[in-house]
Design a protein around this nucleic acid. Structure first.
Lengths: 148, 148
DNA sequence: TATTGTTATACTCTATAACTATA
DNA sequence: TATAGTTATAGAGTATAACAATA
């Protein structure tokens, strides 16, 4: 007299569910760690991308991080106010802003990266090295497929 | 005369970043698909879990889905209003609500599951079958580690 | 680019009621 | 009983972030 059985896909075998739930937990770890530094995860992503690419336009930044072009404005406002980035109009196309890292931004990024390296090491320690590498590779494939 | 080079971990090699970003995209697909049915992703998760476990208490439900015990209330309110679940006080412990699926809830779950099966098939089609299986296994390990 | 508003979600804190254990 | 501590649910407020529409 238990409940009826159905052939529905169980939640725990849905990769989408596992992915979304795991990501929420991981993001929370990012938020907690970065909050002691005064950065939001998306702000760290912006600093990290600027460090990798050098000065670039807001639109390019947004595309690289998969951020909405409207939403990036507020994150940049915060970073500029803290003195971590500078925005300058592109003389070649004055609609555009050229965003660049300041020395202070470079310093805070180094601190944030060290902290996040630790978070990641702890977070993915449940996977042995070969699995972790394969997982990272598959994640990359998935991300590329989802954002292309 | 390029920008300076630093040894910071690049964003694109951070599994946390790839995980969180991919999950946001996948969740959006869930939201879009389920919105035509009138369900939120968390409401689908509730229905799916009830179908798997049979009637159970709110707290048990929340723990299984990794939902905040405060936040589950509103989702259940919506489901009850739509007639998909019933809440009854547990006579053995009147603080508790026993949540159970209605026939109508069972029907909508079947419809939602079919739709989500398609979403998942498309989403993870970028991984070949062996990789997809390994990825799912690793995701499971990660989820268990993060929620235990 | 920037602004505004909406949506989805999680998190924190607090309130209420009901249970448990104990003096 | 009476009291104190705990638990299950509920509600309000806030934070992060995506998305849509518009200026």
């Amino acid at each position: 007299m238990g409940h009826a059985e159905y052939s529905n896909t169980p939640l725990s075998s849905r990769m989408g569910f596992l992915l979304v739930r795991s990501a929420l937990r991981v993001r929370q770890r990012y938020v907690n760690e970065l909050s002691t530094i005064g950065l939001l995860p998306n702000q760290h992503a912006i600093l990290s991308t600027l460090n990798e690419l050098g000065p670039c336009h807001q639109k390019e930044l947004a595309a690289r991080i998969d951020l909405d072009t409207g939403d990036i404005v507020a994150y940049l406002d915060g970073l500029a106010e803290a003195g971590y980035i500078e925005r300058n109009r592109d003389p070649a196309d004055r609609r555009r802003q050229i965003v660049s890292l300041t020395p202070s931004g470079t310093r805070i990024l180094a601190i944030a990266d060290l902290a996040l390296d630790e978070v990641e090491a702890e977070t993915f320690a449940c996977l042995a090295l070969p699995e972790r590498k394969a997982f990272g590779h598959n994640l990359n494939t998935l991300y590329e497929s989802l954002t292309s």
